[in-house]
């Protein structure tokens, strides 16, 4: 079976009913989709399948054969953060980080679909994505900021992770 993940083509050996989550994590060692519940309840395993947010734990790999899969690694890199990655960083929307990949891919699908910065619409878009740390407010703020087209100066947050730089205005 063939699968393209973040632009890279893979030949998959796992059986056809193996979950996409297991294929990504166990066979391909792409570990950003998380196994939070493996029963469709938490959203931590969400990836984009041809641009549509899907719970990879409930998706048999045979059903996505030949598609383009995007995980959070495919959005941008530490040296080239996507707008959503910048917004999550700027708004402190990732606390422990465990829900973050799934949350961001649901958000990316929402943004790509032309979603507005309305809080209710955003809540709807991330419904079923459980975050136990943030209380959701910062996540919604981050998604709204991208929907509005806010720009972020991340010279402090992106370049000096771990260093206290009080001089930079972010």
């Amino acid at each position: 079976m063939n699968l393209t993940v973040n632009g890279v083509a893979h030949e998959v050996e796992s059986g056809p009913l193996t979950s996409l989550l297991d294929v990504l994590r166990e066979e391909l060692a792409i570990t950003s989709p998380k196994a939070g519940c493996e029963q469709g309840g938490c959203g931590a395993c969400t990836v984009l399948v041809d641009g549509v947010a899907r719970r990879s734990c409930l998706t048999p790999v045979a059903s996505v054969q030949g598609t383009e899969i995007t995980t959070v690694e495919g959005l941008g890199s530490p040296s080239d953060l996507s707008p959503l990655q910048q917004a999550f960083t700027h708004h402190y929307a990732a606390q422990c980080g465990f829900c973050t990949s799934g949350m961001m891919l649901a958000a990316q699908a929402y943004i790509d679909g032309g979603g507005s910065d309305g809080h209710e619409a955003i809540q709807e878009a991330i419904a079923g994505h459980v975050c136990r740390c943030t209380g959701y407010v910062k996540i919604i703020d981050a998604i709204a900021a991208v929907a509005r087209g806010d720009e972020f100066d991340l010279t402090v947050t992106a370049s000096s992770a771990g260093m206290v730089n009080l001089g930079g205005a972010v």
Partner: peptide, 25 residues
């Protein structure tokens, strides 16, 4: 000086780029 300042999370960029390695990763 840190109170009220916007400080980077030491793990923030790793979280949003899928680089954080949790135990099961």
């Amino acid at each position: 000086k840190a109170v009220g300042a916007r400080l980077p999370r030491y793990d923030g960029v790793a979280h949003v780029t899928g680089r954080t390695v949790f135990v099961d990763d």
